[in-house]
Simulated assay, not measured.
Amino acid sequence: MSASYSSARAAAREAASDQHYPQGALYVVATPIGNLADITLRALHVLELVDVIACEDTRHTQQMLRAYGIDKSGGQLLAVHQHNETEAAHTVVERLRAGQRVAYVSDAGTPGVSDPGARLAAVLVQQGLRCIPLPGASSVTALLSVAGVAAESGAASGFVFQGFLSSKSTERAHAVQLLMQEARAVLLLEAPHRIEALAEALGALGERPITIGRELTKQFEEIATLAARDFKAWLQGDANRLRGEFALLLHPAPVAAEGGDAVRILTLLLAELPLKTAVKLAADITGQPRNALYEQALALKSGKTA
């Protein structure tokens, strides 16, 4: 397979070799999340250039390097994963202080984003050493780019990266309750063996849209947008949907009522119910953010109009 990337490596050397690659620096390299062709030219050049490649899984990385036709000995690969990241960072520091160039790659995607790499970078920054990012593939940005989430008038803008929720059912259910109060889009990640449990928990979000990205960039990639309450049934509709890695985008909370209607509804509810209950019901009815309604309720209770 390496021969198929020989032209890519030649293009990488031509396009990237004239740039400056300082010694004594860590190169944080994004790698494909499934499709090997998603590697960047600069990443190919740096992976050939560096003295050492620190990686989440040395066997996985060696397999990837061989696919690209990059020859690194076992002694040039250093295991730096979630169980030894802080300790292994000191080995990286020693190599950088000796003037070596070191790359860091996780198993897939951009290091430090729900993958090891963040602690390593933190140690190097504390030591005054340089970290150079080589951007590339990421399931987060891949899903965001096709989910069709655009800021609407009155809706919360931006997104929150939540990553993996707890594997414990009680903690996961609590996290979903908190998501109900988050008006912005929320990006989640999940493994195949836990996706059914997550789908069941997210069902509590009802009609709120969610975009599902399964096996992004791979042969059996699947992207679908549906109501959160329908997620579990969607999974059960095809046994193949329980396979592969998942990125999930919870869409922003819909603005179902104008601000004036929300205040009117909140005022009516406050006349009959305790403040917290009134706020919860008003949020459910109007789609307005609960925190904003809570502040409005306090203002109404105090006799203010703001």
Rank of each mutant, 00 (worst) to 15 (best):
I53G: 02
Q177S: 03
V125N: 11
Y5K: 09
V263M: 11
A233Y: 13
G128K: 10
L134Y: 00
D51M: 00
E85N: 04
V28K: 13
H81L: 02
A8G: 02
S6G: 07
L124W: 04
A137T: 03
A25P: 04
S4A: 15
G148K: 03
L47R: 04
Q62F: 01
E258L: 09
L300M: 12
S167I: 01
F164N: 06
L187I: 13
D38V: 05
E272C: 01
H90I: 03
P254K: 02
M1Y: 02
A191P: 08
I212Y: 03
L49T: 04
L266M: 05
F231C: 00
H83D: 05
A88W: 10
A239L: 07
D261S: 06
N35H: 06
D38K: 12
G237W: 00
L144E: 12
L250R: 05
R130P: 10
R59K: 14
A233R: 14
P22Q: 02
A150P: 09
L120Y: 05
A8H: 07
T217E: 04
I223N: 03
E272Y: 05
Y104M: 10
K304G: 12
A98E: 10
Q236A: 14
S2H: 15
I210Y: 00
H90T: 09
S169T: 13
G154P: 14
D115T: 05
R241G: 01
K72Y: 08
Q82V: 10
R97N: 14
L249I: 07
E171W: 10
A256E: 11
G109T: 12
A151K: 05
R9M: 10
Q63G: 15
R119Q: 10
A108L: 01
C131V: 09
A3R: 14
L270T: 03
I223S: 02
A98M: 09
E207A: 15
G117V: 09
M180L: 00
R194L: 06
A25E: 07
G34N: 05
M64L: 15
A191Q: 01
L298T: 06
E221R: 09
S7V: 03
I210L: 14
E171A: 10
L275W: 00
S166N: 07
A292D: 08
A292Y: 00
A156V: 07
G203D: 02
A89H: 06
L144N: 11
V92E: 02
E272M: 07
V102L: 03
Q100C: 06
